[in-house]
Simulated scan of single mutants.
Amino acid sequence: MSNIFSENDLEILIATKDRCNFDFLLKMFPFKHFSNFNLLIVNQSKTEILLSEYNSVRVINSNESGLSKSRNIAIKNAIKNICLISDDDVVFYDNVIESVLGAFILYQEAAIITFNHIRVGKSYPEKKLYKKFEHNFKSIWDVSSIEIAFKVEEIRKNEICFDENFGLGSFFETAEEFLFLRNSLTQKIKMIYSPEIIVSHPLVSSGKDAGADNLIFARSALYYKVKGNFAYLWLLKYMLFLIANNYINKADFIKKYKKGLAGIYKYKELTNA
């Protein structure tokens, strides 16, 4: 693959649900009409059909559910050299195309490049690092899916996909991007962080309520997947962390701990671990 890219080499993969028109795209691209970009939209719905009259905007309607399933459908059906992952509630910066393609031209060895984003209402980006670095198993914990771009041929060649047990709409509603990147590093995929801000995202995030039952359930499953039986020790330490930082009350310790155990048991059940 050539390392000199044009605007036509980038495709934005958008996960959405229950859409019947493109009004949401107008908010995502406030600086130029969305038809000026190559978009692949996966619309998950059992009731709504989304149709496109634009050659640059392709739509796949799916009656399946789950964010990771949506991402995998998009990866399988992408047709451009470089793909950028997106949700349907972001707002792109007007330099998004130049920033993404410029990074892949600059860092020719990288198959995956992650970028930076800013939360709506904040004056500073999520990541405070303003220099490029090569990702490792520790740094990928801080990556959001909307920051990830990749060379699709490398992803397919190495059979890298999202774990469909994780992510919104699945059994464990967290960490799908971490597992995607972890799988990539395991496959020796070169992965770079580039500090450009390419997108903004609403302030409210499903991952911020650390003491919520669904998050404890999901994170416990994640740690069992990654660390095996060490997850039981981690869960105990995590409960103490939540209490110390006032995410949960001491009176809720047993209830929350059991919720974590339930997550581990559910993961073992799903995977026959």
Rank of each mutant, 00 (worst) to 15 (best):
E269A: 05
L222D: 01
S56Q: 12
F92R: 15
A218T: 05
S123D: 12
F115Q: 15
Y130S: 11
K237W: 02
I105W: 05
S184G: 12
D88K: 05
L215E: 01
E147C: 15
K76F: 01
A210Y: 00
L179N: 11
N95C: 09
I198H: 15
I160Q: 06
I198T: 14
N36K: 15
F253D: 00
H135Q: 11
K190L: 03
V120A: 04
T47F: 13
K138C: 03
K190H: 08
F31D: 08
T271G: 02
N272A: 09
I192F: 08
M28K: 12
N43L: 13
Y267T: 11
I264A: 07
Q108A: 12
S123R: 08
D23P: 01
K256V: 03
F253M: 01
N38G: 13
I75T: 05
I97E: 08
K17D: 10
T114D: 15
V100G: 05
N249G: 00
H201S: 14
S56W: 09
F31M: 07
E196T: 10
K27W: 09
K259D: 05
G207E: 02
E53D: 08
A221H: 03
S145W: 04
Y124W: 06
A210H: 00
I49L: 10
L168S: 13
F162A: 08
D252C: 00
L10N: 13
K250I: 00
Y54K: 11
I82S: 11
A218K: 06
S70K: 01
E173T: 14
L233G: 02
N8W: 01
I264N: 07
F34M: 11
Y224D: 02
F24P: 05
L25N: 12
K151R: 12
F180E: 09
S200N: 12
I85R: 07
S139Q: 02
E269C: 04
L235W: 01
T174K: 07
K255Q: 04
A251K: 12
S99P: 03
A244Q: 02
H135R: 10
S123H: 07
K46V: 12
A212Q: 03
S99I: 06
I49E: 09
G66M: 10
I60E: 11
E134M: 04
N246Y: 00
D89H: 08
S45T: 15
L242I: 00
H33K: 14
T174E: 02
L215R: 03
